[in-house]
Computed example of a mutant assay.
Amino acid sequence: MTARLTLVQGDLTRQHADALVNAANSSLLGGGGVDGAVHRHGGPDILAACRALRASRYGRGLPTGQAVATTAGRLAADHVIHTVGPVWSATEDRSALLASCHRESLRVAAGLGARTVAFPAISTGVYRWPLDDAARIAVGTVRDALAAAPDDFDEVRFVLFDETAYGAFERALADRG
């Protein structure tokens, strides 16, 4: 069975899924945007798990493009997968790091046995990645991962906060090239 790749306009923290992907900062200790919302709505258990990760494996923070899982606290999910997206640069191609966020998040999700995974539009907020390009990279990377392991997931969902982001991901999803 091949996983469905779907789009939803809404709030990531309100999604029911086995794993929610958090567009985290490298500190893993919360922040603004999606990261802040995940920590606020998920409650103190997520922060406690992130602090434990910082005290053990990630003393210098989670590297850009990597992913790690914690509890989902009060969210309607079993796990939160934290990934650090790259800051967009006009002078340096960092698209491989953005693709890595999606690949690594799916790798972690598969390792957890998660059948449904919900992603935000990673790096498109304060990290300023242009929406159309981020959508192209995200959708292409997830499509490739699902083609390589078609039985790992039932659904991978992109949860887009507004109509503009939804439109960008809808165009990327429609593009088969």
Rank of each mutant, 00 (worst) to 15 (best):
A118L: 02
D151N: 14
M1P: 13
V84F: 09
R54H: 00
A165L: 10
D132P: 09
A172E: 09
Y166W: 14
D154F: 06
S26C: 07
L97M: 12
R40I: 00
R136H: 13
G36C: 06
V80R: 01
G30M: 07
A48S: 13
F119G: 01
G10C: 12
A168N: 08
L28S: 03
L112C: 07
G113C: 00
E170G: 02
I122Q: 04
A174E: 14
L131R: 15
A118D: 01
V117K: 06
M1C: 11
S27N: 12
G140S: 09
E92V: 15
A114Y: 04
A138C: 10
V126R: 15
A165F: 01
I46D: 07
H102Y: 15
L29C: 08
P120D: 10
Y58D: 03
P44C: 00
G33C: 01
D35F: 11
A19S: 11
S27D: 14
L28G: 05
V8Q: 15
D154C: 02
A67N: 03
D175V: 01
G73A: 04
P63C: 11
R176V: 13
G113D: 00
G36S: 09
D78G: 15
G65A: 06
H41E: 15
R176Y: 02
V68S: 10
G140T: 10
G140R: 08
V38R: 05
L160F: 09
S26L: 00
D162H: 09
L173E: 13
V34F: 10
D144M: 09
A134H: 04
D175K: 03
A165I: 12
T70D: 11
R4T: 14
R128C: 15
S95L: 00
D144K: 13
E163C: 03
I137G: 00
F169A: 03
A77Y: 11
A110Y: 01
N22Q: 10
G85W: 06
L131Q: 13
H16Q: 15
A49N: 08
G177F: 11
F153V: 07
H39T: 00
R107H: 15
R74T: 11
I81L: 07
L98G: 02
A77H: 10
Y58L: 12
R4W: 05
I137D: 01
A121P: 03
L146P: 05
D35P: 08
A110M: 04
S123K: 07
P86S: 01
R4H: 13
I137Y: 02
Q66L: 13
L5W: 04
P44Q: 09
S27E: 10
T6A: 13
T13F: 08
A24M: 10
C101V: 03
N25I: 09
A114D: 04
R143D: 07
V38D: 04
C50S: 15
L160T: 04
R54F: 00
D93L: 08
L47P: 06
A67E: 02
V139Y: 04
F119L: 01
S95T: 11
F153I: 09
A3K: 00
G111R: 04
F158Q: 05
D144L: 12
T13N: 07
A24S: 14
D132L: 10
F169R: 02
